[in-house]
Nucleic acid binder design. Structure first.
Lengths: 134, 134
DNA sequence: CTAATTTTGGTAATTAATTACTTAATTTAT
DNA sequence: ATAAATTAAGTAATTAATTACCAAAATTAG
């Protein structure tokens, strides 16, 4: 089945987990996130580590430990989360990036650039505070 | 680097090769396509086989053999080519497709569906005849 | 008819993403 | 203090996509 929009499992886990954490009073741990998102707890743990390093999350070990937002949900955009996991979204022209292209113009016209910009704009317009009751 | 729009190497090879074939008088072979697109000739051969099976290309073996369009370029859309390689583009809601989602609504709103539809519409609006001089 | 060229189709190797496992470090509760 | 729960970090296993290779079939040219 042709799948055009590529949101990796990693990015999906990051975004969904962050919304769950936002909605949770106190700490929530990897096992509960894994259960609620039907994802690998190992993978979740790896990704949340990144978000901790980038200071979007705090983590606490030990019983009743887990993760919580490191700052107010009004200050963390979906784009912050996405780019923390995937790196900066590339808004450049070519969706393929070969050393050479046989054509003068891109066969995709401006479409792929537009799609990427639309996606980036959407992520940039949404903050975790928009998902408090969701 | 965050890459949102996922055009596989296979789809890219199919589309670029078909445009090259369109611009070529007579037959063009895998080696020349490989050279001009800087792609693996093995991969190209595999993908063109599919397009032959789906009747968008004719192939001829032997010296001076190669590939040519099986029908007029006005009758083959980029969408035809794309879907021949990747399967039908899925316009359904969820970009992730997990057995369950913890949320009532999609955190991506309508954005991923819109992007997919935009892409599909673009491919559907372009025919190989639009790329005769390109 | 023979040699060279080219696609076909099957299979193997490589690479990147995901998932799994294991040990260590930290924290809490008893 | 000790045991239990939990994250951290490193590494291994699995899977899917891509790339590579090879033998067979077909075609052309001489």
């Amino acid at each position: 089945m042709g799948k055009v929009v590529n949101i990796t499992e990693a990015a999906s886990i990051g975004l969904h987990s962050m919304v769950l954490i936002t909605q949770t009073k106190g700490q929530i741990n990897v096992n509960e996130i894994a259960e609620r998102t039907t994802s690998s707890k190992y993978h979740i743990a790896k990704i949340l580590q990144k978000l901790v390093r980038d200071n979007y999350l705090t983590s606490q070990r030990g019983p009743a430990g887990g993760f919580a937002l490191a700052k107010p949900p009004e200050t963390i955009s979906l784009l912050n989360i996405y780019e923390s996991i995937e790196g900066e979204i590339n808004l450049s022209e070519c969706p393929i990036n070969k050393p050479t292209c046989p054509f003068k113009k891109c066969i995709f016209g401006k479409m792929t650039v537009k799609m990427t910009r639309d996606f980036r704009d959407y992520l940039n317009s949404k903050y975790l505070s928009d998902f408090l009751d969701f």
